[in-house]
Design a protein around this nucleic acid. Sequence first.
RNA 1: GGAGAGGUGGCUGAGUGGUUUAAAGCGUUGGUCUCGAACACCAAUAUAGUUGAAAAACUAUCAAGAGUUCAAAUCUCUUCCUCUCCGCCA
Length: 409
Amino acid sequence: MLDINLIREKTKEVEKALLKRIDSVNLESIIKLDDERKILITKVDKMKAERNKGSKGKPDPEEIKKMKTLSEEIKKLDEELKNLEEKLKEKMGELPNIPADDVPAGGKENNKVIKTFAEKPKFNFTPKDHVELATSLNLIDYKRAAKMSGSGFWIYKGDGALLEWALLNYFIEFHRNNGYTFIIPPFLLNEDSAYVSGHLPKFRDDLYWTQDGNCLNATSEMMLGNYHRDEILDENNLPIKYYAYSTCFRREAGSYRKEERGMVRGHQFNKIEMFQFTKEDQSWIAFEEMKNSVEKLVEDLGLHFQTSLLAAGDASAAMAKTIDVEVWIPSMNIYKEVSSISNALDYQARRGNIRYKTENVNKYVHTLNASGLATSRLIPAILEQFQQADGSVLIPKVLQKFMGKEIIK
RNA sequence: GGAGAGGUGGCUGAGUGGUUUAAAGCGUUGGUCUCGAACACCAAUAUAGUUGAAAAACUAUCAAGAGUUCAAAUCUCUUCCUCUCCGCCA
């Protein structure tokens, strides 16, 4: 949600910025609605003031008659006002966040690679893809998972399960050392929360729903963003840094399984999510810090990867700026996202009504999130990038202590 | 799943139709006192919206929504949540 006052005061600038990510903007109609709202509120409030005055003490019968007509009129106007406010809210909700100045306009094709890390691995043998490796090393059981749960699921087994858990442990330890607070949230959340996190109405079909009207969490960002909903935070506690573990569930309706074999895209995967609530002048510092953390995490695994600045149209609508960390998957000849680091500024905080008090003024916090990290795309990258001629796979140094070995064979 | 009790400001807690502009206490902040502190005393202490240059005024909010009424924290209905007891149960 954008600030209506900003839209009123800097209409042209806002319009221009929004055109970087969407084709057409009509701010005038929003301002007009807001004008109507103001006029109506002034009118109704005056009538209510009159009624309150008249109803103090015991009015005589004639006065009661007058007040009755007044009350009926107020009721009508209140109804009108409610409709107007709903319409305005809906229109405001459709507006995406204003992209940061350095974010390129347009869609995916305008994403900019910022930096590349480590070397692309070279093989003097024919490399296998991660499905072959995971199957031959008995790390992942795709077949039995399909039998039990259908396609898009997999079973971690033996060293595969240990590798998954080692990654999670590695992340958990890393964030703990960086002063983040660990959260394990419920994996089910109610509809209201999904609206506040911005996943509804857009992703309704991509979420799993229970018979009680809850949905399964698709990323713990949904939980963390709601954690301080409707609160006024103590500015001395900011920035607040959380990281959460959750299993994430996604229907992935309509996606192509063929091109994304194995575990690149599934209905269920594990993820550690980072989240920060900051003061308004601290969020870009936090953004850098989070980006550096994610880069360090992947770098220390020894993987070849790159970072990209997403174009306005490719980033999610709530975000002012997003940088993707993309890891090299040799068999696909492509870089696949393992983390998006995003700054929403006050856009999410407005929706969730999350503020802090500073010098006796309440301001909206800024919110940021980043995966730190999802495992399901790292495992293919690790298997493929670190495979040896004999079909074994070297385990990254940072994971060895969690697995008790150096090589999977 | 059944039965019961509840939800009031940062917190505790009074308030069953009309000076409630929500009592009182605690907490917090500022001041007086003091060499300094404690005590004591004085004062301030919610959020949002509208009008206004400002001072300020007005409106709404007592879990949420609807209703009754000239007037609702208070009466009625619905929903949500919390607690207690019972039942069921990986």
